[in-house]
């Protein structure tokens, strides 16, 4: 059974710590080149096709800015 996922990031609350990037097993997430109003580069799905919706990024996120969605395919 395969899964496909997607994340939604609350970009204004993201502090760009990069812990989600280091813990993403499929290297889906990266820090954006742009910054939010506080000057932090926020995380986003650089390769949306790779996301499996495992929610590891959201579990380690200290600021709970990531929401995870997942579907079976």
């Amino acid at each position: 059974m395969a899964f496909k996922g997607a994340i939604v990031v609350d970009t204004e609350k993201c502090k760009g710590c990069g812990v989600c990037v280091a813990n993403c097993p499929t290297q889906t997430i990266a820090l954006a080149k742009k910054v939010n109003s506080k000057g932090y580069p926020y995380c986003y799905m650089e390769f949306p096709d790779k996301c499996t919706g495992c929610s590891n990024c959201a579990v380690v996120c200290p600021d709970s800015v990531i929401t995870v969605y997942r579907v079976k395919i």
């Binding site: 502090k15 919706g53 929610s55 579990v59 969605y69």
Partner: peptide, 25 residues
């Protein structure tokens, strides 16, 4: 995919919406 019925993990309802003052990470 981003649809309420596919939701698997998000912010707990017990947490408030206040942005935490802690350092990044």
């Amino acid at each position: 995919i981003i649809n309420p019925e596919n939701f698997v993990y998000g912010k707990s309802k017990v947490l408030t919406d206040t942005v935490m003052h802690y350092c990044p990470g």
